[in-house]
Amino acid sequence: MYYRALGFQKDYAWASHDDIPFSPPKIPLSQATVALVTTAVVDASIPKPVREANSYPIVDVPDHFDTSELSWDKETTHTKDRESYFPINDLRARELRQEFKALAPRFHFVPTEYSQRHTIETDAPLITRHCLEDAVDLAILIPL
């Protein structure tokens, strides 16, 4: 309805899949390497239409991500608290308590793409490759 009110002829067709891949964890949490994936923008100097997935050192998490171009409820809330969408401090505390083995050396940005093809053919495979290189066991994905 919202899309039509904007004057588009058709509703946006969200990705739809009946089959769901599923890989239960292979090791206990205490031995797991954990990666974090976000849609919040790390490098806003790259224009939105050409933004691609990328990975960044976990030791260089920005104090603030750019969320201005993402679709969230700007009337009701705000994104001034990074932990509310990228809980890195909570995860670091868990790592120190040895709840899991370690945070992966990189975290990952995936753009919210209008084109599902870009996500399926380019962005998701890139992030997956990086996670495999980092020997990631568990990934927590937090889309805004």
Partner: peptide, 19 residues
């Protein structure tokens, strides 16, 4: 959809979301 690709590669995923 990224979660699906990760999972297919053997990495267990969880998405935290509100949609």
């Amino acid at each position: 959809m990224t979660a699906r690709t990760l999972e297919a590669a053997g990495i267990a995923t969880v998405v935290i979301g509100s949609a």
